[in-house]
């Protein structure tokens, strides 16, 4: 099948099979390996990408469903000049990852959260992020990173 969609701001046209997932097309066809796959059953969040701004699990989302839509992956967050997204920077500053395998999905979910709710409380962060598993960090620094990014972005918009 012919699949046309916008990926990280650029239009793409690729061939895909009906049963292929978005994660497979991203990783295997487009060699965009930032999106990680772990559980493959939509419970760990490692494969989270944004489709028209909403977080989806790319491991179970059929690629063809993305036709005509805007897909954002972890590779799409860094600005062309190398500036990181405030969330990426906050994850670095708060040591919010160890092995890093959950990190792309974690950052994409957090991005969806902050796009929706720019100043979430701790409880709101915990509730929203509950679909993302991290086995390394005990979540503590991830919550701190999301709070830090929210603050940094808040200051940006006030300026």
């Amino acid at each position: 099948m012919n699949l046309q969609f916008v990926l990280n701001g650029k239009p793409w046209r690729v061939e895909c099979e009906a049963q292929e997932t978005l994660a497979e097309v991203l990783r295997n066809t487009l060699n965009l390996n930032g999106t990680k796959v772990s559980c493959e059953v939509q419970v760990c969040g490692a494969c989270t990408v944004l489709v028209d701004g909403a977080p989806v699990s790319a491991c179970t989302y059929l690629a063809y469903e993305a036709r005509g839509k805007n897909v954002t992956t972890i590779e799409g967050l860094e600005k062309p000049d190398g500036t990181l997204d405030p969330l990426q920077q906050a994850f670095i500053d708060e040591f919010a990852f160890q092995c890093g395998f959950c990190t792309p999905g974690m950052i994409m979910s957090a991005k969806a959260l902050l796009d929706e709710n720019p100043a979430p409380t701790r409880a709101e962060i915990i509730h929203y992020m509950d679909g993302n598993i991290c086995r390394c960090t005990g979540y503590v620094p991830i919550v701190a990173a999301i709070q830090r990014a929210a603050q940094a972005m808040g200051k940006e918009t006030k300026k």
Binding site: L32, N33, G34, T35, T73, I74, E75, L77, E78, L84, Q88, Q89, F91, I92, F97, G100, T103, P104, I107
Partner: peptide
């Protein structure tokens, strides 16, 4: 840090 937060 940088390679892990950028998916690289």
């Amino acid at each position: 840090a940088r390679v892990k937060v950028t998916g690289k």
